[in-house]
Every structure is written in C-alpha cells, then in structure tokens.
C-alpha cells in the first residue's frame, strides 16, 4: 500500500508539473491546485499510513489506542487544505485581473503586452558609474 501511495503521489506531482509549465495561466492554476493536493498526501504518507482507525480517544480511555492513525499530519493537512483553497482563489483572481488587463491568459503574451510602454533603457535608474560610462561613451 505504501508503495502504491508513493507512486500515486508521484503521478499527481508529475501531472501538476506538466500543467504548471503550460503557456496558459488557467492550466498552470490547475497544476498549482494539484501540486497542493500532492503535497498534502505526501505529508499524510510521511506520517505513516496503514491503519483505518481515526485518532479519536475512546470513551473512558485516557490516551489514544495504539492502532490509531497519527494525528499530527492530519492537523497539518487540514489547515493546509483550507489555506490551499484560499491561495487558489487568490491566484484565480490574479488570472482574471491579468486577463482583464491584457486581454490574454497566456503568460508570454502578457509579457509582450507589457513591453511597449516599458521605461526606455536610457531613462532607467542605474548605478552612477554605469551612467557615467554611458555619458562618456
């Protein structure tokens, strides 16, 4: 089972990476979501898996039974899921804004759209010696 879980996470991460490299931002965003899921699963796996018993202390008992799942990775993953959602929503808004701004969802086109009104190289602030060199040239 552990091996299978590790391989599953590998597949998930590979798919995420493939999407992150896409030229359109919506796909990259989906890759971001998948990567988060992969990370969450990896945390769970690193805390060791196998048991099906949840980390609940039985009524009347003082401590967790020996066979119960490790509670720590669960606590970490639980908040990570919610925060992951928050970040995905934020990223989505950025994609929307970028789209509204540049009329494209493709990162390279945005780069192109930005260049024409870039500050000309001569007016860019530079270190004094560089400026001096240019003046001398």
């Amino acid at each position: 089972m552990e091996t299978a879980l590790a391989l599953t996470i590998g597949v998930l991460v590979a798919a995420a990476a493939y999407l992150l490299l896409a030229r359109d931002l919506p796909r990259a965003l989906l890759g971001f979501v998948l990567l988060g899921t992969g990370a969450n699963l990896a945390i769970l796996a690193a805390g060791r898996v196998g048991t099906m018993a949840p980390p609940l202390v039985a009524s009347g008992a003082e401590a967790l039974a020996a066979g119960a799942a490790n509670p720590l990775p669960q606590a970490l993953v639980l908040t990570a899921i919610v925060i992951g959602f928050g970040l995905a929503a934020f990223a989505l808004v950025l994609v929307m804004r970028a789209h509204a701004e540049f009329g494209t969802a493709c990162a390279e086109d945005m780069d192109e759209a930005e260049r024409p009104d870039e500050v000309p190289a001569t007016a860019r602030p530079a270190l004094a010696p560089a400026a001096a060199r240019k003046e001398a040239a």
């Binding site: 391989l7 996470i9 590998g10 995420a16 493939y18 490299l21």
Partner: peptide, 19 residues
C-alpha cells in the same frame, strides 16, 4: 513531459525512501 516525469519520479522515490 520529461521535466514532469523527472519531478514525479523524484518525489515518488523520495517518499519511498522516507517510508
């Protein structure tokens, strides 16, 4: 795809080593 497979494989192997 090559980069993605490399990363996926690397993560899987890392997890196996951890486990």
């Amino acid at each position: 795809a090559a980069v993605a497979v490399a990363l996926g494989g690397s993560v899987a192997m890392l997890l196996l080593a951890v486990l």
